[in-house]
């Protein structure tokens, strides 16, 4: 059985300064890296002889509009099926520069996951073969999962019931 400390130590030994913020919320190893290091890091983990993180579970993003310089966070979930070990990698991006290299060279499944993340958050995956919107229509000119597009306030008072047949 791999332990969080053991995997974290290997990653620190290999990447040193480039990885940071190690944590294990609910026993899932989590850390951040930079966008320059994300591809070398994941390919290292994928080709590591004992770890073999050969399964990309998920890619998604989170928007933190209030943290300056770190507005967007792209989250990768990797899974080593051999060792039954999961980990989570975060890459923080600034709002004015939302570029990150694509993972499609390593995992075929990254294609649609990245398209979805682009569609909903506007993260641009450099080198992606076909970065188009996937769930929303192509003509849409904003990224709906960003926090600046709130859903309608359910407590608003200005709705006229008669217009809604109530």
């Amino acid at each position: 059985m791999l332990t969080n400390e053991e995997v974290a130590q290997t990653i620190i030994n290999q990447f040193g300064e480039a990885v940071s913020d190690f944590d294990d919320p609910y026993n899932l190893l989590t850390f951040s890296t930079s966008r320059e290091q994300i591809i070398p890091l994941v390919s290292f983990l994928k080709s590591h002889s004992t770890y073999q993180f050969g399964f990309l579970t998920d890619i998604t993003a989170i928007h933190y509009p209030d943290s300056a310089g770190k507005e967007f966070c792209v989250v990768y979930h990797l899974h080593s099926l051999i060792n039954n070990f999961r980990l989570r990698i975060k890459v923080y991006l600034a709002a004015e520069d939302v570029h990150i290299p694509t993972m499609t060279g390593l995992f075929a499944s990254a294609n649609w996951m990245e398209r979805e993340t682009f569609d909903l958050f506007g993260i641009i995956f450099d080198g992606h073969p076909d970065l188009r919107r996937i769930l929303n229509m192509e003509e849409m000119d904003y990224f709906p999962m960003r926090k600046e597009y709130p859903l309608e306030d359910s407590t608003r008072q200005d709705k006229i019931d008669a217009l809604f047949g109530r």
Binding site: P25, Y26, L28, D58, T60, H77, R86
Partner: peptide, 18 residues
């Protein structure tokens, strides 16, 4: 406050909630 990833075996495979 916290972040959780939980997966169950859905009808089609790993259904995860992040």
């Amino acid at each position: 406050v916290g972040e959780v990833y939980h997966a169950v075996e859905g009808g089609n495979g790993e259904l995860g909630f992040y």
